[in-house]
Design a protein around this nucleic acid. Structure first.
Lengths: 170, 170
DNA sequence: TGCATTTAGTTGCATACGAAACTAATTAGG
DNA sequence: CCTAATTAGTTTCGTATGCAACTAAATGCA
């Protein structure tokens, strides 16, 4: 594909040899995504940490168990596209803090179903409105339609990005 | 925006009626962004590491010095919204590898102008086409208009996100 | 001038991360 | 059956990260 004839930036000096490609981080999607994501995560992380002493991976577990109900660590891994180590550690911390329960499956003792404890549910119920409010504020510069469009665009990109990663072991 | 009155407020409202808000990580923007960003970065990181033995922060320095010309570490930090530690370490590695030069400003010996060496320029010229190709592939599921829209939406969000971190609403 | 403050950049330390090695339980298959 | 291969989940270990403390130079100011 012939891409990137970036618009009005270069004075299009034809002498400029062709190795000297025009490139700007500002229009480079991976960079834009990384920047935005780190800004957003950073802000959220601080909030969750200070108010609930919970990390983002831990919050993901709480969010999933809270919205989708009890499931195993492996289910969570697939559901949230998280690393299994990340799930394991988040679960360990949440268990330790008493926010989730772990029930070993008697049928298959390797598996264990995780579920929110009362304190976990409480956290879920407390965080959800705050998270939504944060998100609303974040996207307050967007119209409803723009927000839907954005999610849809991110969805498409995510699909492509998944196919780009060299067959992740799942 | 007048929002939460502080931490006490949330617990001061033990009445949990509206807490069964419909919430799903899937529609939660911060999560979608983090997921996509990590997929994209991961894929790119592997590519740069295997082909050029260079990390993403290092690549950012090369990209900026290559496209915008020589500048100080501090300029880079502002330009790329990077942490100063990150810039310092990336610069140290690139220096060590001989990809950049460092010239101390005689006027102000704290400052030093960084610039690409020949090998740095070579890397820049080699990576740029690959990066653009990657990006083109990543966004191949989007129309030109969609891609422009996306960048614009990300821009808006980034602006808001920056304001969120600089003015911590807590 | 002389000392406090600011600024550019680096380093130390404690944490987070993920790949890979590992344990324990289950299933396959000879 | 018994061993090999697979699966769920945990731990180890090297690296990356970022805050905070630090060094060194420049500036403020009295």
């Amino acid at each position: 594909m012939k891409s990137q004839e970036s618009s009005a930036d270069t004075s299009a000096d034809p002498d400029q040899d062709q190795d000297q490609v025009t490139f700007s981080l500002d229009n480079f999607l991976p960079y834009r995504l990384a920047l935005l994501s780190s800004l957003v995560s950073g802000s959220i992380q601080k909030l969750y940490a200070s108010e609930f002493d919970i990390s983002i991976p831990e919050w993901r577990l709480v969010a999933i168990l809270g919205s989708d109900g009890p499931m195993t660590a492996n289910d969570i891994r697939q559901r949230a596209a998280m690393d299994k180590v990340q799930v394991s550690r988040a679960a360990a911390k949440l268990l330790d803090a008493g926010h989730i329960r772990k029930q070993v499956d008697p049928e298959d003792k390797r598996r264990a179903t995780l579920s929110l404890s009362d304190s976990g549910s409480k956290i879920y119920n407390q965080i959800v409105p705050i998270a939504l409010e944060r998100e609303a504020y974040l996207s307050s510069a967007l119209s409803e339609k723009e927000k839907r469009d954005l999610i849809q665009l991110l969805e498409k990109l995510t699909k492509t990005a998944k196919s780009m990663t060299t067959a992740p072991p799942m």
